[in-house]
């Protein structure tokens, strides 16, 4: 907001909206977990994926191109940011997370730790 006065006037009656919870799909297979999150309107440089201990958090800021002087007249997306966090269990390996982000969809692949990978045990017959 370039106009400082307007900003202050707005702040009185407008509290910042809480961040949106992005819709996610979470699927586990034998070798890890795939998390897919919808974060439309977030450019790649405004996306943050963070591991803090066992906590995985995803955050994104919405940046829309808007023409000068636009007034909102109807809105279903009413917050400028997405935020959601998850706690990972110990069988997952946070150091090997792979992240891809395209067209507002974040895909995270969290592999299971070596020791948690399924192992086929050969049964020897005497």
């Amino acid at each position: 907001m370039s106009d400082g006065k307007q900003d202050i006037a707005r702040r009185e009656d407008v509290r910042p909206a809480p961040a949106l919870l992005p819709a996610v799909d979470i699927v586990e297979d034998e070798t890890g977990i795939t998390l897919t999150a919808d974060m439309p309107g977030v450019p790649k440089e405004k996306l943050t994926v963070r591991m803090d201990g066992q906590n995985l958090s995803i955050e994104g800021e919405i940046a829309l191109e808007t023409p000068e002087g636009m007034e909102p007249s109807y809105a279903e997306i009413r917050s400028p940011a997405y935020r959601r966090s998850f706690s990972l269990s110990r069988d997952l390996d946070p150091s090997k997370i792979d992240a891809q982000f395209k067209d507002g969809v974040l895909r995270l692949r969290i592999p299971k730790a070596e020791h948690a990978q399924p192992r086929k045990i050969t049964v020897s017959v005497d």
Binding site: M1, S2, R10, D13, V14, R15, P16, A17, P18, I62, A63, L64, E65, T66, E68, M70, E71, P72, S73, Y74, A75, I77, R78, S79, P80
Partner: peptide, 27 residues
């Protein structure tokens, strides 16, 4: 500038009513 489009008051119910009215007015 997009902030004004996205930053709405958190009192959703009264806000939704207001927006409905605005939408009625606009359309």
């Amino acid at each position: 500038m997009y902030e004004s489009l996205l930053r709405f008051p958190t009192d959703l119910f009264s806000e939704f009513d207001r927006m409905q009215q605005e939408m009625e007015r606009m359309f």
